[in-house]
Amino acid sequence: MTILDLKRLVKDFGGLRAVDGLNLSVQEGKILGLIGPNGAGKSTVFNCIAGVYPPTEGEIYFDGTKINNVKPWNLCKQGLARTFQIVKPFSSKTVLYNVMVGSYVTTDKRSVAEDRALAVLETLSLLDKKDIKAGNLTIADRKRLEIARALATEPKLLLLDEVMAGLRPTEVDEMVKIIMGLRDSGMTIFIIEHIMRAIMALSDWIVVIHFGRKISEGTPKDVASDEKVIKAYLGEEYGVS
């Protein structure tokens, strides 16, 4: 079943067309990877989906309803959660506080919000850091906190924007394990990532965009051997023998 469907999505910034007629759909229970060189428009696609920018043209359907002009907070209530490429923790507050902001979305009761936040922290092995101020965390833990906050809203679809950028290889492996665990628990995930090793291992299906256009899609294996993808990443002059 399709949970997220983009139909001819276009986003202009002034004269610049950041996303150009993108068609894409995310299947329930699967991990879709979105890759592309720097400036390809990946984060813009996420921001359009998450309600930060209204699309210039085209339609976005989430869970069967059109969400072109739905505000971010309402999307979150409908079950769409996201993380930010540049992490945005509530630095002066504790880890638990950060996650509780997310878990308050479906409840008004403090005890319910706190219990759910603690459960999420447990699954992400952040429980021992729950009383640390978010501003004092390492970058790996901050990325994890981003995911924890998003998970606390109990989403149907999770948008992950470069949650592994800046991590050490061992930390990347841990993050891959976490995301695999989320998929196994039935979560649908749409992920942007630059670390090829990670995205190849994680994704069920990969879409490649370049200058806002889709240039290829397929299983990780197919995409990796696609000549157009290699050229987009390495330049026209790079010969594929």
Partner: peptide
């Protein structure tokens, strides 16, 4: 507090 500190992140969390 969330909206005061990081409005974008707060909005994405349903605030």
């Amino acid at each position: 507090s969330a909206g005061g500190e990081e409005p974008e992140a707060a909005m994405a969390l349903g605030v």
